[in-house]
């Protein structure tokens, strides 16, 4: 019994990481209906940036965030204004294929720079530390990851619904032309949305890098996890991505408990079941 409780708790905490993968994806889809195929590769890029920062400056990965987050945000803004804005429109092919090309470029640039060897971020011991909760050993890093995910989503929710920036995001999402009439330059607003999304990606990448080893090829898998969390939770609902991430995480840890080779597959199956019975996700978009 306690064993299974542990499995579920682990899954819930893992769900925090997946929610972080999903939050950026959900944000940019909500604002500009863009699905970024390179999202997972950008997470891995952030992890490698964390690696370089920690190695060069000898700082803890969390401190490296102070550099990686603004760099990723800046990259997001430039990427959006330089390339992605040109792909937006009624046709879904250009954004899809351009971000797909981007994904291949990032992957191979990482391969060229860092080789295919698996790397890991040195968290200085917190990755193995755990606290005892009524006989349950809970990993400190997974717990922190989950709490950070909750904080990030609460923060995004605040920005979205309580600030002028978020008002701009929602207005542009509702009606680009009219938003433009209000003095909002949509190209700039989209740039800011992508910057914010990649700032979250930076957090996700650093946490991923401390948790497990990574190599340039695993971005696609992270995109899929984030995507599954988004769809399970319901499109366009930020708290839904957390719920989706948790369900995915729990499905995976239960699968892994049954058979280690079954972990990822169990997550995919959970996703397909949700798609079959609740195609709009568990918490579909709420209009405000």
């Amino acid at each position: 019994m306690i064993e299974w409780t542990g499995v579920i708790v682990q899954g819930v905490l893992l769900g925090g990481l997946y929610a972080l993968f999903a939050a950026g994806l959900s944000l940019i889809f909500g604002v500009m209906r863009l699905v970024n195929i390179a999202h997972g590769d950008l997470i891995i890029l952030a992890a490698y940036m964390g690696l370089t920062t920690t190695v060069m400056l000898g700082v803890h990965p969390f401190l490296a965030l102070l550099i990686v987050m603004p760099v990723m945000a800046g990259l997001g803004y430039v990427l959006q204004r330089g390339i992605l804005n040109q792909t937006l429109g009624d046709d879904i092919l250009p954004p899809l294929l351009v971000t797909f090309g981007l994904s291949v470029i990032i992957q191979n640039a990482l391969l060229e720079t860092y080789t295919a060897d698996p790397r890991k971020l040195d968290g200085g011991g917190i990755e193995v530390a755990s606290i005892d909760m009524g006989g349950l050993a809970i990993g400190v890093l997974p717990l922190m990851t989950f709490l950070i995910a909750v904080a990030v989503i609460a923060g995004l929710q605040f920005i979205f619904y309580r600030t002028a920036l978020g008002r701009g995001f929602r207005a542009v999402s509702d009606n680009q032309d009219i938003a433009q009439l209000m003095g909002l330059n949509k190209a700039h607003v989209f740039g800011l949305a992508m910057a914010l999304a990649l700032a979250v990606v930076a957090i996700a990448g650093i946490l991923l890098g401390m948790r497990t080893s990574f190599d340039p090829a695993i971005g696609g898998g992270r995109l899929i996890f984030g995507f599954e969390a988004v769809i399970i939770g319901g499109l366009g609902n930020l708290w839904g991505t957390l719920a989706g991430g948790v369900i995915l995480g729990v499905a995976q840890t239960i699968g892994a408990k049954i058979d280690p080779g079954f972990q990822i597959l169990a997550g995919h199956i959970a996703f397909l079941i949700v798609l079959a019975v609740r195609p709009n996700g568990l918490l579909p978009r709420v209009e405000h």
């Binding site: 207005a171 999402s173 009606n175 209009e287």
Partner: peptide, 25 residues
Amino acid sequence: ALVPEGRQLFPSLSVEENLMIGGKV
């Protein structure tokens, strides 16, 4: 400023938010 045909308010925004976004400039 334009008051567009068909009003075209932002459905995701409350009344006050619609007004505030008008003050964006």
